[in-house]
Amino acid sequence: MSKLKIAVQKSGRLHDDSMKLLKDIGISIDNGRDQLKASARNFPLEVFYLRNGDIPQYLKDGVVDVAIIGENVLIEKGNGITVIEKLGFSSCRVSVAIPKGKKYVSVQDLEGKRIATSYPNTVKTFLEQHQVNANLHIINGSVEIAPNIGLADAIVDIVSSGSTLFKNGLKEVDVLLNSEAVLAISPLITEANKTLLDQLQFRLKSVLRAQQHKYVLLNVQNEKLEIIQNILPGMNSPTILPLAKEGWSSLHSVINKNQFWEVIDELKRNGAEGILVCPIENMVL
């Protein structure tokens, strides 16, 4: 029986978020400590635990069919690999950082400078786009220390909170690209495994869609129903149910989490009472 082969990062935050996502879509993984490969109990799926930087080559070679990987790694090493879904977690950016006491006005200030980075292809493309010449020092890990030991004038590395830069006396001055976890597909995936991937992606979409919304229940006087209904359009329109209390109804609807508090405030101003908010596990359209 065919099995879909998926690669995830061996350890770290991206690994943890990837495994949680697989769990959220109902896939149970039998994996023990330090295993490099594991099978799912309830879906034809094998999980490969790999170094993040190695995953693009495994995709190119067809060793794995799909991967959950940082978009920044694909941009650096995954030429020809297609992203089929953005997953909305493990957000970061690839940025230029320099010592706090140094001045930076624009990318032109990097002309002739020494830049330490683990992302040489990304940096070269960025510099070429701005017609800037600089000297690259390729470092795998601990890039932040390079300016402090006199190896570089600036660094280009991934940044999440910026705390690591701060601890090393650096400041972020320019952003090359923004990144998040994505689902990427091998160009060599078989037709049989494309069918399995469609099933997996269907589950992913329902969970990711649910994460962007909240389910809301509220009570309102019937005379205010039209106003509240205009505030709460829902997927097509709100569900309206009569309450035992005469002249009152209960409305059920869905709110995009990015508009949540604004909508709740407007509901309250227009007479909504007893507002309940519930998370949504899956949203199937």
Rank of each mutant, 00 (worst) to 15 (best):
S2F: 02
V8T: 03
Q9H: 02
R13Y: 06
D16V: 12
S18M: 05
K20A: 12
K23T: 07
K23L: 02
I25G: 09
I27F: 01
K37R: 14
S39K: 14
P44Y: 03
P44H: 00
Y49K: 00
Y49P: 00
D54V: 00
L59T: 05
V63N: 07
L74G: 13
E76D: 04
K77G: 02
N79Q: 12
K86D: 14
I98S: 08
K100Q: 13
K103C: 01
R114Q: 05
I115M: 00
P120Y: 04
K124W: 02
F126C: 09
E128L: 11
I138R: 11
I138P: 09
S142K: 14
P147V: 10
I158V: 15
S160V: 14
S160P: 00
G162S: 05
T164D: 07
E172K: 12
V173P: 14
V173M: 10
L177Q: 11
S186G: 05
I189W: 00
I189F: 01
A192V: 08
R203F: 00
K205C: 04
S206K: 08
V207K: 10
R209S: 13
V220F: 11
Q221E: 15
Q221C: 04
N222R: 14
N230F: 09
L232H: 05
M235A: 10
N236F: 14
N236W: 13
K245Q: 11
S250K: 15
H252Y: 14
V254M: 13
V254E: 12
I264S: 12
L267N: 07
N270S: 10
G274Y: 05
C278H: 14
P279I: 07
E281S: 11
E281H: 05
N282D: 03
L285K: 08
